[in-house]
Structure formats: C-alpha cells, structure tokens
C-alpha cells in the first residue's frame, strides 16, 4: 500500500509567548507529535522584563495543515498570539549567517570580491581564511553559500528566519 502525501506551501509564523520553562519543548513537541514540519525556528525574549518571547517558525504543509498548526499553537496556554506573516501580507524576512571560507591566491580574492557584491562583512580573517557575516533573505544567503562552495567553503552557521510585517502594524 502507498503512504499518502499532499502538496506543501512555505509559511512564516510569528508567535509571541510567555517566556516560561518548557514553552519551547511544548512548541517543538507539538510539531513532532502532530507530524508538522519545522524548516527553521528562532527564539529570543523581546520585552524589558524578559516575560515575553517571540518565536519565528518557518514551516511547510498543505493549507489545511498550516491552519491547524496556527490553531494548535493558539491552544497552548502560554501562547499569546500567532501571526501567519505569509498570509498576512507584505513582510520582511531576514536571516543572519556566518560563513567560513579557506583558500589562497585567486580563490581568496574571488571570495572577497563576491562578498563585497553581497555586502557580506568580514568579521574574522587569517592569511588563509575568512569568516563572513551576511544578513538577508534566505535565498540570498543560499546563493552566497552556493558560490562559496566553489571557493573553499569550510562551515556555515545560520540563525534561521526572523520576520516582520511591513508598514505601521505591530507584528
């Protein structure tokens, strides 16, 4: 017999929560328990008294599943608000990456040149390596990493996406 699957969409969710022990486990556990996907997840507290955190989750699934993810998240007692940025309209998505490249001669010069084009910053250097810092939309980071792969890519660290609505509205 066949195992059934359905077509997916990518969505970015901004979730504000009480910053209490176990909340992250509740959220990630919800995703595993109900078979939802997490592409990336970022979290940090955002209020003066450290009482509230904002979690950005990038997920994918069929529309009905995305709706379930939102409502299931809203059911959790410590969750204040879930906003589907993808559905809500124009928004910005940014991600930060640290990218280490090692090489000599022409390769090294080329890496630096491309980094300038992408407005990546050099945050560490030795005679044989660079660490670049790059912020941008995830696909910009993807293409930068793809180019660096040919020029001596050593390691990559990515923050995962944070997102925000454009315009006046909060979230």
């Amino acid at each position: 017999m066949k195992i059934a699957t359905a077509a997916s969409e990518r969505h970015v969710l901004a979730v504000t929560v009480d910053n209490e022990p176990g909340i992250l486990a509740k959220i990630t556990g919800l995703f595993t328990a109900r078979g939802y996907n997490i592409d990336s997840l970022t979290v940090a507290d955002i209020s003066d008294d450290h009482a509230v955190s904002r979690i950005t989750i990038v997920t994918n699934g069929p529309p009905q599943v995305i709706d379930q993810i939102e409502t299931q998240l809203e059911r959790l007692v410590p969750v204040h608000k879930v906003v589907d940025l993808t559905a809500a309209g124009p928004h910005v998505e940014r991600e930060l990456a640290l990218i280490k490249v090692a090489g000599k001669g022409e390769m090294r010069v080329e890496a630096l040149r491309i980094a300038e084009l992408f407005r990546a910053k050099v945050v560490d250097t030795t005679t044989q390596s660079f660490v670049f810092e790059l912020t941008g939309a995830p696909d910009k980071i993807d293409s930068f990493i793809a180019l660096m792969r040919e020029l001596g890519l050593v390691s990559v660290g990515r923050s995962g996406v944070v997102g925000m609505m454009r315009g006046l509205k909060s979230v």
Binding site: G22, K26, G29, V77
Partner: peptide, 14 residues
C-alpha cells in the same frame, strides 16, 4: 513527568 505529560495535558506546571 512534565515531559511525559506535555502532550496529553491541556497545560502542565513544575
């Protein structure tokens, strides 16, 4: 207990 009951409770506290 908190971990075990996380997904079969409406909420739990330590």
């Amino acid at each position: 207990t908190i971990g075990i009951t996380r997904h079969c409770t409406k909420h739990n506290y330590l």
